[in-house]
Amino acid sequence: MLKFANFAHGDLMTLGMFLALAVVVDAGLHGGAIGPLSFGWGMIPAALVAMAGVALVVLGLDWLVFRRLRARGGGFITMAVASLGIGIGLRAIVQLIWGPTAFRYQSGINEATTIFWDLKVKPDQFFIFGLTLLLVVVVYLLLYRTKLGKAMRATADNPDLAEVAGIETEQIRRWTWVIAGCLIAVAGIMLGIQAQLRFSAGFHLILPMFAAVILGGIGNPWGALVGGMVVGISQEVSTEWINTGLKPAVPFLILILMLLLRPRGLFGSTI
């Protein structure tokens, strides 16, 4: 929506993931376990802290960096370069605070249940999938059924026209950052629940994320969901035939194929 490739996206996820860790582990708010899930009620305040933290960070970055670049008319290319620098810095900060080792929110094994045939799913994974669906619905409703969403889309489409129509584009951009920050934090926590917490976890997701967004069509929330699933599933399934070490190449191949065949994405891009 802000119309530039944010190369700090993955590292902001890492930040959210570790902020939640600070609450759950360092502050000792485990809160046992909710039903069959591997984490407890402590994850709720942790998620709130992480969302607020990441939202504040991105607001601060917008104020310090991106606002100035917009004012100068630097265009999305300079913003992408700046976001790369921010990502490098964030990765260093996470390492400075939490060190280079891997963490988990909680030790112990999350028992998988067989649904049918040989398909095994962990309760955590059900939770993540359900929450993702819910969030996509929320984002969709926000973008297409509220005034704020309309203003956000207008700002993304044509900032000057939006400004003329009386939309406070700078305020809308701040709201966009806040919402994005909250979503990034939740995504980071989900990643932390599913895998280990490492300083580099988010950065390694950049390529699959971009592949998913381009596959689904930039600026299209349903497309992003479908794109994410296609990229994720094909990446996992591919290990049946190819060397596991080559797994990172799969999203790249999808990306290149998409760019060659349908650069606007499967479902069309809004910008």
Partner: peptide
């Protein structure tokens, strides 16, 4: 790590 942080900051500060 501080060295890496400075590299990131250098890029951002010079771009801005």
């Amino acid at each position: 790590m501080i060295r890496q942080l400075v590299i990131g900051l250098l890029i951002v500060v010079f771009v801005v």
